[in-house]
Every structure is written in C-alpha cells, then in structure tokens.
Amino acid sequence: MMGIRLPFMVHAAKQTSSSFKSNVPKGHVAVYVGEMQKKRFVVPISYLNHPLFLDLLNRAEEEFGFNHPMGGLTIPCKEDAFINLTSQLRAL
C-alpha cells in the first residue's frame, strides 16, 4: 500500500486565535474538511488558485457563505476526496 504524504494534518480542536495562527506556517492556510467529524489540514496557499481547489472553495461559499462553524475555512467534502485532491495537486 502506498502512503499519501500531506504537508500537514492536525485534528481539529478548539484553539484560541493566537494558537490557531501559530500553527499555520507562512505561505499556508488552514482548512477544515469532513462531513460529520471535521479535520484540520494546512495546505500551501498556491492551492487556492488551482481550478480543482477553487471548485471546493465555491462549494464552501454556497454552503456556508461567510459563516464557517469551525472558526476557519470549512470545506464541505469527504476527507478522502480532499486527500485525493491535494495529492493530485502535490504531484503537479
């Protein structure tokens, strides 16, 4: 079985705004992904301009508008689909 490497993956947890910022390296953005249980992923900001990632952002806008329940950007998709997408983006 081949492993999938992601830049960072941290389980979602309640955090203060200062600890939230300190866990995100410069040039990256934290997003919450999942349907029931949300997990926190930290991805490069370069992903934000890719058409596949923009599709996810558009779906997030349609579902949540500017009200993101986790306090950060929440993307409404299955975790395995997000991992697959970010793996494709890393391969580019």
Rank of each mutant, 00 (worst) to 15 (best):
T16P: 00
M70T: 13
P51G: 07
G71W: 04
N67P: 00
R59F: 12
R5E: 06
S46P: 01
L57V: 15
S17I: 07
L89G: 07
I83Y: 08
K21R: 13
V31L: 05
L56D: 14
F64R: 09
K39Y: 07
F64V: 03
C77V: 14
H50P: 03
H68C: 11
L57E: 14
K38C: 02
E63K: 15
V24Y: 01
A12Y: 12
M9H: 15
S46C: 10
N49W: 11
P51M: 01
G3Q: 13
V29T: 13
T16E: 03
P7I: 01
S17V: 07
L6R: 12
Q88A: 13
D55P: 00
A13D: 08
E63W: 10
L54P: 00
S46Y: 05
K39P: 00
T74E: 09
K39S: 12
G71V: 01
S22G: 01
E63P: 00
G27I: 00
M9Y: 13
P7S: 11
R40F: 01
R90V: 02
Y47F: 13
T86F: 08
M9N: 12
S18Q: 07
L73R: 06
V33E: 00
V31G: 04
P51W: 02
N67Q: 08
P76R: 05
I75G: 03
Y32K: 01
F82A: 02
E79M: 05
M36T: 11
T16A: 04
G72F: 01
F66M: 09
I4T: 13
A12L: 11
K39H: 05
V29G: 03
K14D: 02
G72V: 10
G34W: 04
P44T: 05
L92R: 11
G72S: 11
F41Y: 10
I75S: 06
R59S: 13
V29S: 03
S17H: 01
R40Q: 14
S22C: 01
P69L: 12
S19N: 10
A30C: 07
L89V: 05
P51N: 03
R90T: 06
K26F: 00
D80S: 09
G72D: 14
K21M: 02
L6I: 10
A13W: 01
T74Q: 08
L56A: 15
R59Q: 15
K38D: 03
F41E: 06
L73C: 14
E35T: 02
E61V: 08
L85D: 09
K38Q: 04
T86H: 12
P69T: 04
S18D: 10
S17F: 02
P25S: 05
S19F: 04
A13G: 09
V29C: 08
P25N: 02
S19E: 14
L56F: 14
A91E: 14
S17R: 14
S22V: 00
S19H: 09
